[in-house]
Amino acid sequence: MPIPFLAAESAGLLANLLNHSVVLRIFARYWRYFLEGARGTVIIALITVLLGSILGCGVALLRLSNVKPLVWFSKAYISVIRGTPLLVQLYIVYLNVERVITFPNATVLWLDFRRTMPCIIALVINSAAYVAEIVRAGIQAVDIGQTEAARSVGMTGRQAMGLIILPQAVKNILPAIGNEFVTMIKETSIIQYLGVPDLMFKQGIVTGFTYKPLPSYYIAAAIYYILNLVMSHGVNTFERRLQASDRN
């Protein structure tokens, strides 16, 4: 009878949650696991978004170039990545990367390099497609009159892009990339399936100790929520600063 059992357990745990017992007890005992996991999650999300932004800018510039094959390539890339589940991409990239490259056994930033790198590569490939669309939208949001004015004083297309358009586009792009980081913190949770010690992986370990999955899920959810609350607040503050500098 799994359903009545779960219902009973949920009700019981909810009661426990309300009187601050099981959840807090588990967190008091195993907090180190959760915080290590959270650290892994933040580091992986940060590296992913940094590398993904660089690759994404490249893809966006291909997309906006005048060279047909490059445009087709970037369109296909963005379309395939956005049209398939991240989990499937993760396995495909992971298995392919493993066949081609063997990363050295080492611990970098508290993470198992060999196991983590293929995951980061998969996440970067995914994130780049989303960033590419952010960058493209950011560039296209700059008034066409700016390009015309730049060209009318004799700037080349490249100069107009570098000196006039991109500096303005950055103000549209950066807050959206901040939001991509917030999204990535949540999305990285799937790499637990490949044994990378992120927050969800550690949550699984704690469940193995306690035989009580729900409290650890509550704790994991709370940590994700707090991380993203802090990040979103940071992004909003940053966005307001950018807009303020616009008015000067």
Binding site: D143, G145, Q146, E148, A149, A150, S152, Q168, D246
Partner: peptide, 10 residues
């Protein structure tokens, strides 16, 4: 231009 099109970032 009609819309001036001064470079807003400069």
């Amino acid at each position: 231009f009609q819309q001036f099109n001064l470079f807003t970032n400069l």
